[in-house]
């Protein structure tokens, strides 16, 4: 990678960091829980992108593995938090909970 491309990658990484910092505003001041969850999910996606760009800048390709792990963990964390705030527990079988809720409420 030529030095010019290195500086371009550095600028893009700083741009992604600025975007992440702006997303923190919605995370801290979101009116509802779901706004905050959306901000966390988007923040995680931007973290994956920043890790990929950063490991290209420092020339160590190991960071892509961490980015892959972080992408999967971000998805699982979002689903887990949604399920927790829906059912107030994590050890709920989703089909049984759906049937119980439909049978009870409707």
């Amino acid at each position: 990678m030529s030095p010019v491309m290195g500086y371009f990658m550095l600028g893009s990484a700083l741009f992604i960091i600025v975007s992440m910092a702006l997303m923190l505003g919605r995370l801290l001041g979101g009116p509802t829980l779901y706004d905050r969850l959306l901000a966390v999910n988007s923040f995680g996606t931007k973290t994956v992108l920043f890790l990929c760009v950063f490991c290209f800048i420092i020339g160590r390709p190991d960071g892509v593995d961490i980015a892959l792990l972080y992408a999967l963990m971000n998805f699982i964390a979002t689903i887990a938090v949604l399920k927790f705030f829906n059912y107030r527990a994590l050890d709920v079988d989703l089909t049984q909970a759906d049937e119980a809720e439909r049978g009870g409420a409707r």
Partner: peptide, 12 residues
């Protein structure tokens, strides 16, 4: 995963 998570948040 990104559209799936978005759909899950919207549905919830």
């Amino acid at each position: 995963t990104s559209p799936t998570a978005t759909h899950a948040v919207a549905h919830a």
